[in-house]
Design a protein around this nucleic acid. Structure first.
Length: 708
RNA sequence: GCGCCCGUAGCUCAAUCGGAUAGAGCGCUUGGCUUCGAACCAAGAGGCAGCAGGUUCGAAUCCUGCCGGGCGCGCCA
């Protein structure tokens, strides 16, 4: 039924010829220009005459008028096109009712809802990527909704899809979690929701390790010092050479590139051999002048966003005092303990766990495996609930070594460079800076593993196209990874795409573990379920089997979540408002389920009339015409949603169809249609509407209900 | 400071890869159930499209500059 456009185009081409402008445009040119009129009453398709105006040296309106006159002839006896009407610069086409209604048979009896013919090129869609030992919450649901729908859409487009997950099962977050579990947690792990339990531990670890709760300046080993002298640096106009007085800690000469301070100011001083921001501060020669440590900026100290401005302490600050104590927050830890000591101790404990994990220390390895499985079990439960699919699971733990080797090999080939002790790709010519792949201690980073993972996708899975469904904050990361892949000689890099999406916020603002307003999956499911039972299913208690009620509850909940997550452009932030998303009124998942249920209800109510053939020519009511056109627009919408990686397009199409159906429902009764032939025709139209709603919702990952 | 993204009705969002009078939902006002499901439908009010330029027959859409917000920017993932 794409033939609608083709038939209209051919008809128009003939009309142009009749008007003496035959060679102006080809049939396919015209088909490409055809639009759907703003107002359905204006026609079934619209041909804008603007582009012809230049070629024919006539005004668009004049062309439309001439075209209409020419078409008046060819319309006679035409089985498909009823008339062409000039409306300003547009020539609007009306199909014959029989042809327009042909879509119904195509849907019900043909393969109009079937996927596109198979196309070569396997595509991998990587999505979800949860971290074990962390809470899986509503925010993560957007990713799942988007990833899963893209899997379904790509398959509709005729592609072979490998749906992939990539589990974050290594890294410091796990060390933190297990640190709390082994050192601070007293009691038994629960029997239920053990993944979320681990997430809670992780959150607790984050709090224990959030040293800004203990002090305003959570950097042990730094001292307050007064700037005694400030001279320009002979080798670099942007630098200054400072002479610092750190009281009992002595004096030092430091080269500094920062701004916003003067002689006499009290600043922080990181002396040589102390550890600052995870790195050893060294005594360096900056262009021939020795610098004994450094003076951190506001950004480095965490007191501001400015990367150049130097943080200044109040006048009365004693010199040579450890800054952790200067900023000490009373009441957090016993006064006899020094903040710096606590920071060092906790940090050392976590690092010990991390080293133990990396060294595969048997007891830790066992604990890691066991707890990891708790999370994985919970993920499986979530995926089963929402109904998404994965064909393959990757784990960070399995690409770590591979990533390291890949980086070292690339270094040998001269594709990477060393910088400040680290190894990475120089992407500055592409405006992407430096992509670090191996830290100075030789360990890998996220990007390193992504390179190894990409290679696996290319070589083991032979994918021609690779999609990464990851939130928008990772845009730079993926630009760097793809560019580095290119640098390493992977031509497939050109077919890698980052599908970015925005955050999920709550009506009361952002989600953050600090505010404690994160909605974990178990809570989401429970609240959603209770709400839906109360609002939708309460009245069927006792009437329907409990199993049906439970399944309806799940489907409505999934419809609300999936539709809410998808009914907006992916790149934009969205607000998760449970009341709004579950509303039976308005542009929501439940409304669409309801519309479908009503189509089923009619089909149950009105028996099929045996022996009455479908006569589409009877469907001439304006409301019926609109429904037919919405049905006809379905495929185009699906294919556009795939092309743009934007399921919202499909949501909008389905919503318009549901609305058109509701409007038709008011004025075009099936049961009391009068004529049996009309009743039969309407019945088929209702059936076709239901079929498209079911198919479209299915592509969104939403399962319909026969009654609700 | 640099880069990416987003600014459309009171709120949440659309607008067919530059086209007709910028449209929906929510909320608000009003009307419609002895009728296939009123969980619906109909009508109304509500707009300086962030601001200022530019390109074009035509701009919410493309370009430039500002303003506002979000997110990033080598040893986290």
């Amino acid at each position: 039924m794409e033939e609608r456009e083709n038939i209209a185009a051919e008809f128009l081409r003939a009309g142009l010829e009749g008007a003496g402008s035959g060679s102006a445009l080809t049939g396919s040119d015209i088909a490409g220009l055809l639009e759907i009129p703003r107002d359905s009453a204006m026609g079934d398709l619209a041909f804008p005459c603007f582009t012809l105006a230049g070629k024919l040296k006539k005004s668009p309106a004049a062309i439309a008028t001439d075209l209409a006159a020419s078409l008046a002839e060819s319309v006679r006896g035409n089985k498909q096109v009823e008339r062409g009407v000039a409306a300003g610069p547009y020539l609007n086409i009306f199909f014959t009712p029989a042809f327009r209604a042909g879509i119904v048979s195509a849907i019900l009896e043909g393969d109009w809802l079937a996927p596109e013919p198979a196309r070569a090129g396997r595509v991998m869609i990587e999505y979800s990527q949860p971290n074990t030992h962390k809470v899986f919450h509503v925010g993560h649901m957007r990713n799942v909704a988007l990833g899963d729908v893209l899997v379904r859409l790509y398959e509709f487009a005729g592609r072979e899809v490998v749906a992939a997950n990539y589990i974050g099962d290594v890294g410091t977050h796990i060390a933190k979690c297990l640190w709390v579990f082994t050192r601070h947690f007293k009691g038994e792990a629960p029997a239920q929701h053990r993944g979320e339990f681990l997430g809670g531990l992780y959150k607790q670890a984050d709090e224990l390790l959030d040293f800004t709760r203990l002090t305003a300046y959570p950097h042990p080993g730094l001292f307050s010092a007064r700037v005694l002298e400030m001279r320009p640096h002979p080798g670099n106009a942007d630098w200054k050479v400072l002479k610092l007085d750190a009281g009992a800690k002595g004096q030092a000469q430091v080269v500094c590139g920062g701004t916003g301070f003067q002689t006499g100011a009290i600043v922080a001083w990181a002396p040589p051999d102390c550890s600052f921001l995870g790195r050893l501060v060294q005594r360096v020669d900056k262009a021939g002048i020795s610098s004994e440590g450094l003076v951190p900026s506001c950004k480095e100290l965490g007191t501001g966003e400015d990367r150049d401005k130097i943080h200044i302490f109040p006048r009365e600050t004693p010199l040579g005092a450890e800054i952790t104590e200067i900023g000490r927050r009373p009441g957090c830890i016993p006064t006899e303990q020094s903040v710096a000591a606590v920071i060092r101790e906790r940090g050392a404990e976590v690092r010990a766990v991390l080293r133990g994990l990396e060294a595969r220390e048997p007891s830790l390895e066992r604990l890691w495996r066991e707890t990891r499985q708790w999370s994985l079990d919970e993920f499986s439960e979530i995926y089963a609930w929402i109904g998404c699919r994965f064909d393959h699971y990757f784990y960070e733990s399995e690409v770590d070594e591979e990533g390291k080797r890949l980086a070292l090999e690339a270094l040998e080939k001269g594709q990477l460079m060393r910088s400040e002790g680290a190894i990475g790709a120089d992407l500055s010519t592409a405006g992407l800076g430096f992509c670090m792949l191996l830290k100075s201690d030789g360990t890998t980073l996220y990007a390193t593993k992504d390179l190894a993972l990409a290679r696996r996708k290319f070589e083991k899975f032979n994918v021609a196209e690779s999609l990464y469904i990851v939130d928008h904050s990772q845009s730079l990361h993926f630009q760097q990874v793809f560019k580095t892949l290119e640098l390493l000689g992977f031509a497939q890099a050109a077919r890698c795409r980052h599908v970015a999406y925005g955050l999920v916020n709550l009506p009361e603002g952002k989600m953050s573990s600090r505010k404690g307003n994160i909605i974990p999956f178990s809570k989401l499911r429970a609240e959603l379920g209770a709400h839906i039972r109360r609002e939708f299913l309460h009245k069927y208690q006792g009437e329907w089997p409990e199993a049906e009620i439970a399944e309806a509850e799940r489907r409505i909940a999934v419809a609300a979540i999936r539709y809410g997550m998808l009914n907006q452009e992916p790149i934009k932030n969205i607000v998760f408002d449970m009341r709004e998303w579950t509303s039976p009124v308005g542009n929501t998942g439940p409304y669409l389920l309801y519309a479908y249920a009503r189509t089923r209800s009619i089909l149950r109510e009105v028996p099929e009339l045996a022996g009455t053939a479908f006569d589409g020519a009877l469907l001439i009511h304006e409301k019926e015409r609109v429904v037919l056109n919405e049905l006809a627009g379905f495929r185009r919408a699906v294919l556009r949603a795939v092309r743009d990686h934007n399921p919202q397009v499909l949501c909008a199409q389905l919503y318009e169809l549901a609305r058109a159906f509701s409007r038709m429902y008011e004025e075009c009764p099936v049961k009391r249609a009068g004529e049996p032939a009309l009743q039969a025709a309407r019945l088929k139209l209702v059936a076709a509407t239901g079929a498209v709603l079911r198919r479209g919702l299915g592509l969104l990952g939403i399962e319909v209900l026969e009654r609700m």
